[in-house]
């Protein structure tokens, strides 16, 4: 869109604060203002797209899901009354779109309770073993790659809790599992990530 036609929230934010400027954009979008729709999209596109990308590990699928999430939101924007934060509403919708898509494809959204493999929960390390902590040595790219290699169910819970910041009760409701299962899967996901990151670090260390 041309600079002249662009409804930019940046200035409005400086003057009025995020909530008011977003509220204004929502009101204008309800009236069918194209620039307001675009402003709302620009404000939230990165978070929605990142979520879709990490859940699908496929850019084309992530873009389709992002489009679908925003379209669903914009179709219902007339019903938004502001009882809950707009961003909460949008991200919840994005998560639901992704979950629905994954279910359609038959991918596991969360592992079944009975499939929990307790024996792999924590590799034992003796005190003094030469295995330095990961803490402080994890970079974004490494973590990103490791998340992609997680089984879909673990990946989903990790993304929802640790990346998106949802609470276990919210996750349980969204994916349709118990709170205990959500906690357990999150722990397993983190353990798996630790294992992948350590293996990757060890491989790097042995390379000439």
């Amino acid at each position: 869109m041309s600079a002249a036609g662009k409804y930019d929230l940046t200035d409005a934010k400086k003057k009025q604060g995020d909530r008011l400027s977003e509220a204004e954009a929502i009101e204008r979008a309800k009236q069918g203002d194209a620039a307001a729709f675009e402003a709302l999209y620009n404000l939230h596109k990165r978070r929605v797209y990142s979520l879709c990308l990490r859940m699908t590990a496929n850019t084309a699928a992530a873009e389709d899901l992002t489009q679908e999430a925003f379209l669903q939101l914009f179709r219902k924007i007339g019903t938004f009354r502001g009882e809950s934060a707009f961003s909460t509403w949008l991200h919840r919708m994005a998560v639901n779109v992704v979950l629905m898509q994954l279910r359609k494809k038959g991918l596991p959204v969360v592992p079944l309770e009975e499939n929990i493999e307790t024996e792999e929960e924590s590799p034992r390390k003796e005190p003094g073993a030469d295995d330095p902590r990961l803490a402080g040595s994890i970079d974004r790219m490494q973590l990103q790659r490791s998340i992609e290699s997680l089984p879909p169910g673990y990946r989903m819970i990790f993304l929802l809790h640790d990346v998106e910041g949802y609470e276990h009760n919210e996750i349980a409701e969204m994916v349709g599992c118990s709170i205990g299962n959500s906690k357990s899967q999150l722990h397993k996901a983190r353990m798996k990530l630790r294992e992948i990151l350590k293996t990757s670090r060890a491989e790097k260390a042995t390379k000439p």
Partner: peptide, 9 residues
């Protein structure tokens, strides 16, 4: 570190 991935793409 996971939290830092939010909205990074």
């Amino acid at each position: 570190q996971g939290r830092l991935l939010q909205g990074s793409e």
